[in-house]
Nucleic acid binder design. Structure first.
Lengths: 201, 201
DNA sequence: CGCCGAGTTGAACTGAATCAAGAAACGTGG
DNA sequence: CCACGTTTCTTGATTCAGTTCAACTCGGCG
């Protein structure tokens, strides 16, 4: 069907596991959802989305990872990171149908299976389980963002870095320092100094 | 029925208008939702929620306003403001069923009609329209928070203040400076200076 | 009328940004 | 597979925006 991605079935299985954690879909609803999924492979530095486009897909990552970022005065500022086993999307643009403000870029060769906005709306409209899934996904994305927001309000940069180590260790392990810095809202030099301080202490 | 709040019907009408903006509920679904609503009146400085409690309600504000805030080292830090015609809740706690980290405090005499978590889950489980409403509300709360987050990532304090004037002028008009300052993540003195700068320019 | 909280203003301080230079790691092509 | 060039990271010196601390004004309220 889509021979250029051999792992399609494995990715669908991973998506099913991810979905089951939120809501137990009927086989019928699941099959409808799964049938909308199309594979896509991106090479390193390819864009899943660019500013100005309306985000048309939710993409479940089978392999690889993405970084989303704003471009401001030539400098790029990381919005977030997306890892395998989760969805990558500009949910803001996807939901609001407004042009996106971010790039979503593959940081290495990355494979996704994705569902188009129109397909998803059809699932929402025709199935109760799909509608529920959509609500639970929205709630979960909200929770993640709330936590991030709390850190910006309450914590200084060093504390935000420590919290990130706790909450998203994969970011620390796999992402270059300069991108982590902009995710934390600071300059690379500052994060380097924070790390140096922490080693000594 | 609830004689101590005479405006119950007016508040329900406002809630219906608010709801209609998101989704057109059937009369049946609407009546079910409306029937769960219970009125509550709070005096100035009363708490709708306190840290440690799990938020059990979504409260639609008929009159008045709330401020939610964290308490950190004795200083209170504003999370957000809730105005009449919108829901007030700690959605994070409400959704996750975890103890809240915030106070939600009435800034003046405030009246709400509210729906209990269990009632809402029952509506989600039994009606398609309710589930859809829940999804759309979650999406909208997410959008608002996204915007806030973007400002923290991209903008300096003065720019955040200007954006707040644009996006939520009611906050500027009705809220004391010191609370706006902590909402923006700065000290009251700094916001006072920002205002002084803007007047000159 | 006096008090108290809110806001303003000034001076000193501080932590992060900026600017700059060098070291280390990376990947790319020969 | 190595060598080169580029990017990433570190470290130091300086600058700067926002914080802190303090004093004073203003306006409302008891």
């Amino acid at each position: 069907m889509h021979p250029y991605i051999g792992q399609m079935d494995a990715y669908l299985a991973a998506l099913r596991a991810h979905t089951d954690r939120l809501v137990r879909l009927s086989d019928e609803d699941w099959n409808l959802y799964a049938s909308t999924m199309r594979p896509l492979r991106l090479k390193k530095k390819d864009f899943l989305l660019q500013p100005g486009e309306v985000c048309q897909y939710v993409s479940f990552i089978g392999r690889g990872l993405f970084r989303s970022y704003y471009l401001k005065d030539g400098a790029d500022i990381t919005q977030t990171f997306f890892f395998a086993g989760n969805y990558a999307t500009d949910y803001e643009s996807f939901v609001s149908r407004q042009p996106s403000a971010v790039y979503i870029e593959a940081m290495e060769e990355t494979e996704v299976i994705r569902c188009h906005y129109d397909d998803l709306q059809r699932i929402y409209a025709t199935t109760k389980g799909g509608e529920r899934l959509g609500r639970l996904i929205a709630e979960n994305i909200f929770l993640a963002l709330s936590l991030r927001n709390r850190h910006f309000l309450l914590d200084d940069p060093e504390t935000r870095y420590l919290a990130l180590m706790q909450e998203r260790p994969k970011v620390i392990e796999r992402i270059p320092l300069k991108y982590i810095a902009s995710y934390l809202g600071i300059q690379p030099e500052s994060l380097s100094r924070i790390r140096a301080r922490l080693v000594k202490a």
